[in-house]
């Protein structure tokens, strides 16, 4: 759901960066408390995720480095630091340390009931906040300057959205793991984007796709041995994306190709008609018949196009001869005029 905002804000890879950046937070939280209580660990992850996010912001706004560099930098540096801490922890004489690395790759099966409740509650809060601030989010998304002039505090809204994205990522970490979290965030949103131009519909669809891939993925991975849940969920989501890319009615590749071919046919038809018009115009009688053979030298002429012109009533065929009808002549002479008018 929140992924929609990330995709539309061109911050897609933020998810990836945050999920990596959360690692040192988990490790530090563990170092401080010494316990493997999932709530404190999540808090740590949240804090370090936020620090990472705002540092990325700082790098992008204050220096000349581009956002991709900032993202890659924070991602790898935080993750490396997290690894350092994790290996450091592993050397500590603390029996509790085992299992910290499950956060890395995630394992939905390790979730206990309290985790699920926590997730449900947070999702609920996200939903409520999103509905409350719907208008603000939307306007900030599409026209930040306008929002500012309307007197909204764009910074607060921005921080709010970002915090929720971070929160969602941190929660998701446990389920699908660091590497695949970004896909969970992006894939449903990217798929949903193909089906609609409306934000509300997109968010709804993204949630739907996300839920479906979650359910299907878990089902598939449960049906077979040795399949971890996270990757399967991601692959299911990827299938959704591919299907959406290809089959979506207005933006999909398939329909785009069909439209493309159709346009080309139309153009060929027009070309043939215009060519016929040129020939016919040299005669006083427009319906004076001409041999089909003279059309053969003309590119874009096929039997098919000729037949089509006949079907439309622009051309009449008599044996090997063709002649323009009244209607055909009219259309042909207006063909380019109309286009000019349309252009203007």
């Amino acid at each position: 759901m929140l992924g929609s905002f990330a995709v539309l804000r061109k911050q897609s890879l933020l998810g990836d960066a945050i999920s990596h950046a959360a690692l040192p937070g988990i490790a530090i939280a563990f170092l401080i408390t010494g316990a493997k209580d999932s709530n404190t660990l999540l808090l740590g992850a949240l804090v370090s995720g936020l620090i990472g996010t705002f540092w990325i912001r700082g790098i992008v706004t204050k220096t000349h480095l581009k956002s991709d560099t900032a993202l890659g930098l924070i991602l790898s540096l935080f993750f490396g630091f997290g690894m350092l801490l994790l290996t450091f922890i592993q050397k500590q004489p603390n029996a509790n340390q085992a299992g910290l690395d499950k956060y890395l790759f995630g394992q939905a099966a390790t979730l206990v009931e309290s985790d699920v409740w926590l997730m449900a509650i947070v999702t609920g809060i996200c939903l409520i906040i999103m509905l409350t601030f719907w208008k603000e989010f939307k306007i900030l998304l599409f026209d930040a300057d306008y929002t500012k002039t309307l007197g909204f505090n764009t910074k607060t809204i921005d921080i709010l959205i970002t915090s929720f994205i971070v929160l969602a990522i941190v929660l998701g970490l446990q389920t699908v793991g660091v590497v695949l979290m970004s896909a969970m965030l992006l894939a449903p949103a990217a798929a949903a984007r193909q089906w609609t131009n409306k934000l509300s519909a997109m968010v709804f669809l993204a949630a739907l796709f996300g839920a479906f891939s979650g359910v299907f993925g878990t089902a598939i991975s449960a049906s077979q041995n040795n399949l971890s849940t996270g990757p399967v969920i991601v692959l299911v989501a990827a299938v959704f994306v591919i299907v959406s890319f290809v089959f979506s009615p207005s933006r999909g590749l398939l329909f785009k190709q069909i439209r493309f071919i159709k346009n080309r046919r139309d153009l060929e038809l027009h070309k043939t008609l215009a060519f016929m018009h040129n020939i016919a115009a040299t005669h006083e009688d427009i319906s004076h018949p001409h041999a089909i053979i003279i059309l053969n030298n003309f590119q874009g002429y096929t039997k098919g196009t000729l037949q089509k012109l006949v079907d439309k009533g622009y051309v009449e065929l008599q044996g090997n001869m063709w002649s323009l009808t009244e209607k055909g002549f009219e259309t042909a002479s207006n063909l380019y005029n109309q286009q000019n008018e349309n252009d203007e």
């Binding site: 061109k10 890879l13 990836d16 990827a238």
Partner: peptide, 8 residues
């Protein structure tokens, strides 16, 4: 966008 493509 490009970043989404990478992320996918």
């Amino acid at each position: 966008k490009e970043d989404t493509a990478i992320g996918l």
